[in-house]
Simulated assay, not measured.
Amino acid sequence: MTTDDTTHDKRLTTRGARTRGRIVAVAADLMYIQGVEATTLDNVLVASGASKSQLYRHFSDKATLVRAVIDHVGDRIITRERETIGDVTTLGGLRNWADGLVKLNGLRHGAYGCALGSLAAEIADRDELAHATLLRLFTQWQTLIHEALVALQEAGELLPNVAVDQLATGLMAALQGGYLLAQTERDVEPMAISLDLALSHIEKLAAR
C-alpha cells in the first residue's frame, strides 16, 4: 500500500472503509475470473452496488483500483500461506501444503490460475508501482517457502548441505508453472504433477 493510500485510509469513516473494502473485493473477484483488461469500472459498479461518486471518492481511476486489488489479493494469499506453510515441520507436512493448494485450485478445475500470478501477467509491465508491489508480494511468498525449508533442514529433515534458497526458487517456479498449466488446460492435474516432481526432488535430499 502506498503512503498516499495509507493516509487516505486513516481518514475513512467506518462506513467509507466498508464501502471501499466492498469495491476492492468485488473488483478482485471480477479481475480474477475475467481478467483485468476485460473488467471495467462499470462492471465493478454494478457488481458492488456502489455509486460512481463512491467509487471515485476512493479511486481516481482504474489503475488506482487495480493497485488496491493487488494489495487485497496479496494480503489474502500471504496470510493464507503464513498460516499453512508457516506451520510445516516435516516433509510430509510440505506435501500436505502442496496438496492443499492443488485441492483448492481443483474447486475451480484450475480455471483461473493463481490470483496473484494472473495479475502479474497482465499488469507488471504496464504499471511500475503495481510491479513493485507484485515483486514485494512474490518475494514474501517465496520467503515463506524458504523459511519452511530452512526449518526442515534445522529439524534434520533435509541434509545440512542442501541449498535451500535454490530449492525455494524451484518450488515456487513449479507452483506458478503448475497454476499456469492448470489455467490453460482447465484441469488441475498438471499443477499436481508439477508440484509432485518438485517435492520428489526435495524428498531425495532427505537426511534419512
Rank of each mutant, 00 (worst) to 15 (best):
Q54N: 14
Y56V: 06
T64L: 09
T7Q: 14
V88Y: 03
L94S: 05
L30R: 11
E128Q: 14
M172S: 15
V69H: 05
L107D: 11
V150Y: 00
G106E: 07
T39M: 08
D9V: 10
L134F: 04
L197W: 04
D9P: 00
L175R: 12
S51L: 06
L12F: 03
M172C: 10
Q142N: 14
G49I: 04
A151Q: 05
D125W: 03
H8I: 02
A17Y: 05
R76C: 09
T84K: 06
H146T: 05
A47N: 08
K10N: 04
A182F: 03
T39E: 07
A163N: 15
L171N: 03
T40H: 11
L144M: 08
I23S: 03
R208L: 06
N43M: 09
L180Q: 12
L180C: 01
G35D: 05
N105P: 00
R126M: 02
Q54I: 04
A27G: 08
R15S: 07
P160H: 08
H58E: 04
R136Q: 11
H58K: 05
W97F: 11
G178L: 05
R22P: 00
A174H: 06
S60D: 11
A207I: 01
H8T: 08
Q183C: 09
L195P: 02
V24N: 03
L45W: 07
R208D: 12
L45R: 15
R57F: 09
R20F: 00
G100P: 05
E147D: 15
S48A: 10
I78K: 04
S194Y: 04
V162P: 03
D87S: 09
R186K: 14
D87Q: 13
I202N: 00
A206G: 10
G100M: 05
T6M: 10
I202W: 03
T143R: 11
A25I: 00
A38V: 03
T169Q: 13
T139Q: 13
T3A: 15
L175C: 08
